[in-house]
Design a protein around this nucleic acid. Structure first.
Lengths: 125, 125
DNA sequence: TATTGACTTGGAGTAAGCTCCAGATGTTAT
DNA sequence: ATAACATCTGGAGCTTACTCCAAGTCAATA
């Protein structure tokens, strides 16, 4: 699969795909003759993983570390597990922060709904 | 309340507090004689709001916009409500992204738990 | 009165994560 | 074979959100 196809499929710019590879957030992609990247299914799996994790807020650095561990072989299973678990815990904390902010937004929005009807804003600020 | 007290209380650096005020993510803080900031309860409310929203991932730009609307008076109730609602929807999307990533991490972690026991990693990439 | 310490401002610097660009090269269509 | 097009690399540039710094001011203390 060419980079333009992958770019379309995952809605990531070609620059971003090259960037992820350059810094090691995905393993190196094989090249077709001519030097153009030729993405395999496995490459696509990595890209999807990175996209998923990045959209949740994981740092690219954490992804780079993970790829490094994978490339170091099976001795790194425990280290990989720990890395993923740390990230999971961060996401749990993030979830809670978002939950709290949403609750607050909900309250404020309800105050504004009231204020728009009555012209008076209560309990706000 | 002095800036150092506020800084301690909310675990935000003095620089960050000044930064938020400078860009307008919180309204201007009154000064004591001598020019030092003297935070009121209302200021603390704003700071807490900003801290809450920032920790959930709202952009400072959105917060600046909100403060601007508040300062423009009661005619902006609908605009404020809409701004908050947009942010709320972004958080909802973010929640879903995190949920998906967590699920995936959980699966991978369970794979590694298995792999650490057996020495063999199944279904993993 | 001299100095210590907290505070001020304006502006420069930093880190993360892309994003853009130039110049080169290879592939495809005419 | 020549033009058009996709891709390549290395490096510069951009945005966001701080973070740090220098030079100055003010209040209180020795």
């Amino acid at each position: 699969m060419t980079i333009s196809e992958v770019s379309k499929k995952y809605e990531l710019s070609q620059d971003t795909l090259r960037y992820y590879e350059r810094i090691g957030a995905i393993p190196p992609v094989n090249r077709a003759k001519g030097g153009a990247r030729d993405y395999t299914e496995s490459d696509l799996g990595w890209i999807e993983l990175v996209k998923c994790m990045r959209s949740a807020g994981l740092s690219v650095e954490a992804l780079v570390q993970y790829v490094k561990l994978v490339q170091q072989g099976d001795d790194t299973f425990p280290a990989r597990r720990e890395l993923l678990n740390e990230q999971r815990e961060q996401l749990t904390a993030q979830l809670e922060a978002i939950r709290a902010a949403k609750e607050r937004l909900d309250y404020k929005i309800s105050c504004y709904d009231e204020a728009i009807k009555t012209g008076i804003l209560n309990w706000e600020l």
